[in-house]
């Protein structure tokens, strides 16, 4: 499967964005020929070229083990590439891994390791360590607490927070110091729907305020609201790159049919397969299936599927294609059980 080229980075398809000054000169993150091989010859990243432009929310999408976290760890200067070049805000982070750390906020996938430290202490100290004055760190601590609505647990030790609260506290810490580039690795894991919505709202707000965001997430359907460009990774490589609209256009004139079956056994697989034949459905998790069918024949497919599935179907939806569908088409595998 070939890479979908990004129109804004393609000189043969100039846009207003490129015309404004040239993407290469303005890139916040520039990755060229990146390769990372771990011990045992495990290739985590292979031949990756990527540019993230100022003021955009860039999503990295792909299944577990696709190499997304490895890629951002190298962008952060926390892993040394086997080959290739990475510049962040004009700094060569391969040669000088610490050069850009003052300008980048990083939310790792794991916790940040604080134990007895209280949430507001963690925020303030992070601000000071990021070079803020005492007054500025204090002010931003209050601002972030209010923005994320985490005042109720600001005085709780970090280790005593629930998984979701801990995730939110880690997100809050990442914002301290008002970094120019914010790198978020699965920011909404463990969060309830309301908190997830709050995080996406704040990401959108930060972006409007001028921050560039590099986002790794499994919550593709939600992230689609804020992502402006996306790279779909699989097996260490970038399979597709472009805006969500460009990538979804790749699916052509198709619509998405989604079924949730009452039973999750093998018989359900066969039933759904018969119901949408000759289109091959994908089981995205036990009991949940997606089929992309030609739009012009959508009505016929719907009638036939509902008749065939009868009482076995618990829920049925029909919608335009999503980024998840782009991924499925590219890789032939479901994105993630949580997606």
């Amino acid at each position: 499967m070939g890479v979908i080229h990004d129109a804004r980075l393609d000189p043969s398809r100039p846009t207003a964005f490129v015309a404004a000054g040239g993407a290469q000169a303005r890139a916040v993150v520039r990755v060229v020929g990146l390769r990372k091989v771990f011990k045992g010859d495990m290739v985590a990243n292979d031949n990756i070229d990527l540019e993230i432009l100022p003021g955009e929310v860039f999503g990295l999408l792909g299944p577990n083990g696709a190499g997304k976290t490895t890629l951002i760890m190298q962008v952060m200067g926390l892993l040394k590439p086997t080959a290739g070049a990475i510049s962040v805000l004009g700094h060569d982070v391969v040669a000088h891994p610490n050069a850009a750390k003052g300008l980048v906020g990083f939310m790792p996938q794991k916790q940040i390791g604080h134990r007895e430290m209280k949430v507001d202490q963690a925020l303030y100290i992070t601000g000071r360590l990021r070079g803020m004055s005492a007054a500025a760190a204090r002010a931003q601590t209050e601002e972030v607490i209010a923005r994320l609505d985490i005042g109720e647990f600001r005085r709780r030790p970090v280790e005593k927070l629930s998984g979701g609260m801990n995730r939110l506290a880690t997100f809050a810490v990442t914002l301290m110091g008002r970094p120019q580039l914010i790198v978020l690795d699965e920011p909404t894991n463990d969060l309830d729907p309301l908190r997830r919505r709050r995080v996406w709202d704040v990401v959108a707000e930060l972006n409007r305020e001028g921050a560039t965001v590099l986002l790794v997430t499994h919550n593709v359907l939600e992230a689609e609201r804020v992502i402006q460009r996306v790279a779909i990774m699989s097996a260490g490589r970038i399979k597709a790159l472009g805006s969500p609209g460009q990538l979804k256009a790749r699916l052509g004139d198709e619509i998405r049919m989604e079924f949730v079956m009452r039973h999750t056994d093998g018989a359900a697989d066969a039933t759904v397969r018969r119901a949408v034949a000759p289109v091959e459905p994908l089981r995205v998790r036990p009991g949940r299936y997606v089929a992309l069918v030609p739009r012009a024949e959508g009505g016929r497919y719907v009638d036939r599927a509902l008749a065939a599935l009868g009482e076995d179907v618990e829920d049925f939806r029909i919608a335009p294609p999503t980024l998840e569908d782009v991924y499925i088409q590219l890789d032939g595998h479901p994105l993630d059980d949580d997606a």
Binding site: F106, P108, I112, R115, R130
Partner: peptide, 13 residues
């Protein structure tokens, strides 16, 4: 193991 080093490593310290 808890990931504290990744947090500290990401800071300009």
């Amino acid at each position: 193991r808890l990931g504290a080093f990744v947090y500290y490593a990401s800071l300009p310290i």
